[in-house]
């Protein structure tokens, strides 16, 4: 890998604006994640964390700015004259295939077994042959600690197990970046830990991750960069220790205090930090 490639961020978000009707959700957000970097997005509900993640894989169209993943524009192509052209749905789908996403509500395919959930996209989108896909899926399910659940249906699993399957399903596409949209917010407190453990493992193995979360313990431990969003703008960013322990802005301090009031911030695995 050349030095130029090393310095090239995997995900680059520049001056992105997004509105739903008259509601400005993102107002000039700039974030980037280098290879193997873990970026945690924190902030109150409605601050734009989820929308930012959804823009990165083009589930939402952006109004202004530019997002690239592996130096490729998301959802658009730059023409010879320098103007942008929207990609066809098929082209968008192809680019999205390399961006893994994990949702708050898991969204496992309810009519398929766990194994079928994991191999569906690799076999249908990447055209991996079934045998290889199943072997890979089994490895991934082992890795998230659910090697024995391949034949289970989603409704037979706990929320934590479902979310771990969702992570395995996203990994099956061999993504270059994983986006996590509040992956533990819909979980019972005692199930949060098992999902965070899997995510810690991923971070250790060098996966590039952007995580919207309310788990300050996780952010402190794993994040290379913490970004505090409020009202669609980035209020503060920096290393976890700096933003979480010595926030420079009043608004950040207020937010952290409001979260601390609901759980034990100093614990390695806070379980009630839901804002």
């Amino acid at each position: 890998m050349t030095a130029a490639q090393m310095s090239q961020p995997v995900v680059s978000v520049r001056e992105v604006h997004k509105a739903f009707g008259r509601l400005q959700v993102l107002r000039g957000v700039t974030v980037s994640a280098g290879k193997g970097e873990v970026v945690c997005l924190i902030g109150p509900s409605g601050s734009g964390k989820s929308t930012l993640l959804r823009c990165i894989n083009h589930l939402e169209h952006i109004d202004a700015g530019e997002i690239t993943v592996e130096s490729q524009l998301v959802g658009y192509r730059r023409q010879a004259d320098g103007r942008l052209r929207e990609l066809t749905p098929r082209e968008t789908a192809r680019r999205r295939a390399r961006i893994g996403m994990v949702f708050q509500q898991f969204n496992l395919f309810a009519h398929l077994t766990v194994l079928q959930n994991v191999i569906e996209a690799p076999t249908r989108v990447l055209r991996v042959d079934r045998k290889t896909a199943i072997a890979h899926a089994r490895t991934l399910l082992d890795r998230v600690g659910l090697g024995d659940k391949g034949d289970a249906r989603p409704w037979q699993l706990s929320g934590g197990q479902q979310q771990r399957v969702a992570i395995a399903r996203a990994l099956a596409m061999r993504p270059t970046v994983m986006l996590f949209d509040e992956p533990t917010s819909a979980l019972d407190p005692e199930l949060v830990g098992e999902v965070l453990d899997v995510m810690r493992g991923l971070a250790r193995e060098g996966m590039t991750m952007i995580v919207a979360t309310h788990e300050m313990g996780f952010a402190r431990e794993v994040a290379d960069q913490v970004v505090f969003l409020d009202g669609g703008v980035i209020v503060e960013r920096g290393p976890a220790a700096q933003v979480l322990d010595h926030p420079g802005h009043q608004r950040t301090r207020q937010f952290l205090a409001s979260i601390a009031g609901r759980g034990d911030l100093s614990a390695a695995r806070p379980t009630q930090a839901r804002a």
């Binding site: 789908a93 295939a97 996403m101 949702f103 395919f109 249908r124």
Partner: peptide, 8 residues
């Protein structure tokens, strides 16, 4: 959305 995110 989950299927879209998987590139389908």
């Amino acid at each position: 959305e989950a299927a879209e995110a998987l590139g389908m």
